[in-house]
Write a protein that binds this DNA or RNA. Structure first.
Lengths: 142, 142
DNA sequence: CTTGCGATTTAGAACCATTACAACTTGATT
DNA sequence: AATCAAGTTGTAATGGTTCTAAATCGCAAG
């Protein structure tokens, strides 16, 4: 049933663009994400896709999610799988995470930018904190 | 040596403001963060403070870090300890994490706000992705 | 076809950051 | 000194994720 949500060709195409194959497992995992867009965890996806492919394993769900992230069809919200890092800088600032070295840098965050960002929240959302995290590379001319 | 960096009175004061006591362990942990501001992990802090208090335990380092976060002297960069969540929404958007229910919501991110945010990056920082995460409560009138 | 081969899936073990627990210590208050 | 709460410690447990090795799949060349 949930398989009616996706266009398997575009999925296959996106996977192929990243050098990956399409598989029934990847289809049902992607379909599970599209059917109920509630930011499920890997475990929750696992629970949902078992009705489509009862033999699927949790490891495969992780593999499929990683494949979907890799071909830019899905975003991982809590990207950082590593340990929590601690920062004593109390001034408002964003973080830049260098994916090559793993280093984290503070990026100054002007208050008018911060207030612009918080202004995107519709009424009813009461934010106590905002985290802005860039990921990418740093170049020599820094 | 690293203990020369902090003003123990202000630390004690901040802790007291949150109903917490000052302890030698909390002092050296905080001092370790101030001395080398490289966003260390709990393990790295543990390694550094052992030269100050050789008997300190990793559990205490976690406790101290949590105390410092609680009294707003330190920020935890990868706050989300829970499982990674997956999101098939490809449009630029921020995330709002409701701390009461654990639910995650997409927040529309106008492209002009996004470009303002990325504009804070100094030259030499090449961001491939930006994550903007709000944390807080949602109210009834949403 | 069919054989070969790399990619994928699977089950289960291993890993690692973090938390829980229970005993012990400390330190402020009476 | 006695009390009591808060903090520390070592260790065990937890839980999300990754690893491993074996089985399977599916395309591609012969």
């Amino acid at each position: 049933m949930s398989s009616s949500v996706i266009n398997p060709e575009s999925l296959a195409q996106k996977l192929a663009d990243s050098g990956l194959r399409n598989t029934p497992q990847r289809e049902v995992v992607y379909s599970a994400l599209l059917t109920k867009r509630d930011h499920p965890t890997a475990d929750e996806v696992y629970a949902r896709v078992r009705s489509d492919i009862s033999s699927i394993s949790l490891a495969t769900v992780y593999n499929c999610l990683e494949a979907l992230v890799q071909c830019h069809l899905v975003r991982a919200v809590n990207f950082e799988r590593g340990p929590t890092r601690y920062c004593p800088n109390l001034a408002p600032h964003a973080h830049f995470h260098d994916e090559a070295t793993g280093a984290t840098f503070d990026i100054d965050l002007p208050s008018e930018i911060l207030s612009k960002v918080t202004s995107i929240l519709p009424p009813g959302y009461d934010a106590e904190a905002v985290d802005i995290i860039f990921r990418g590379k740093t170049t020599g001319t820094r």
